[in-house]
Nucleic acid binder design. Structure first.
Lengths: 140, 140
DNA sequence: TACAAAATTGAATTCATTACAATTAATAAT
DNA sequence: ATTATTAATTGTAATGAATTCAATTTTGTA
């Protein structure tokens, strides 16, 4: 209900998503935390300020946002889904040492193969894994 | 125990993986079925010929093969892991209409961003989703 | 052939996600 | 404003892939 920031509410209305306190809070959380949170992380991050919050609501909300294209799933983990506010085309790097997920720029046009010329492509995901700069440094 | 094909056994010995009937059967199945099967599909495909087979053995076997680099995980689904016999660098396209997974060639060198120059990259996965040629044809 | 180490098995468990029905809240109509 | 309609929220229960673990069996080796 923070009247200060109408941009989030307008964004939802544009996408034909009905306003609710929970949805606004989730979007606010996503905007403040660009660290590709899981449903559980969003839930734990908000339950303090929204005591009635239910985990099911998080999943419902994510589904609504996914369908509207407001967020994007990050399936770089095999056991749980993460969510990303799309800010443009980019890849994800997961460090197997510290678990952190890094964004990196992409040039997908030079990647796309002619084999898929007749295919309708809706989403493109690029996931790299390995050890990040910081972890390599601390190991030596 | 089919003596006809020693190549699979040699492959395992090279990777320091102890031979077992189950492991040989799983590798034989993977070689015959290049359709990125799930653990469940492998289990159901083999339980007829290996009655004692356990689902846990499939998971254990896949873990051993993954560590040895004989197979590669395909995390294009959000709920279950698929497995691929590595034959070289390629991307995966999943058709949301028929569910089929297609391989396609990649040129990853032109994709890699300088941002990751100091990172140690162990695996690169490219997942596309959409509608395949066949499904587009039948829709029109 | 016998011993030691590793693999297999199945039952029980974990954990993310989904299903569902009752309650509550948000928008539209009066 | 008040009510009616419609959709969202909530909590509990269920699902299902994957893991844990201890007992049994198999494999490789001395």
């Amino acid at each position: 209900m923070l009247a200060e920031d109408n941009s989030i509410q307008d964004m939802l209305r544009e996408k034909n998503i009905r306003l609710s306190h929970q949805r606004l809070m989730v979007l606010e959380y996503m905007s403040a935390n660009h660290n590709h949170p899981t449903a559980d992380q969003i839930f734990n991050g908000l339950k303090g300020t929204v005591p009635s919050l239910s985990k099911t609501t998080i999943y419902n909300t994510m589904d609504a946002f996914l369908e509207a294209g407001i967020i994007r799933p990050v399936n770089i983990e095999d056991n749980e889904v993460r969510y990303d506010i799309v800010t443009g085309e980019h890849g994800h790097f997961k460090c197997d040492s510290c678990g952190r997920i890094y964004d990196f720029d992409l040039d997908l046009d030079h990647l796309t193969s002619g084999q898929l010329a007749a295919f309708k492509i809706d989403s493109r995901d690029v996931y790299f894994r390995g050890t990040c700069k910081e972890c390599l440094k601390s190991k030596s």
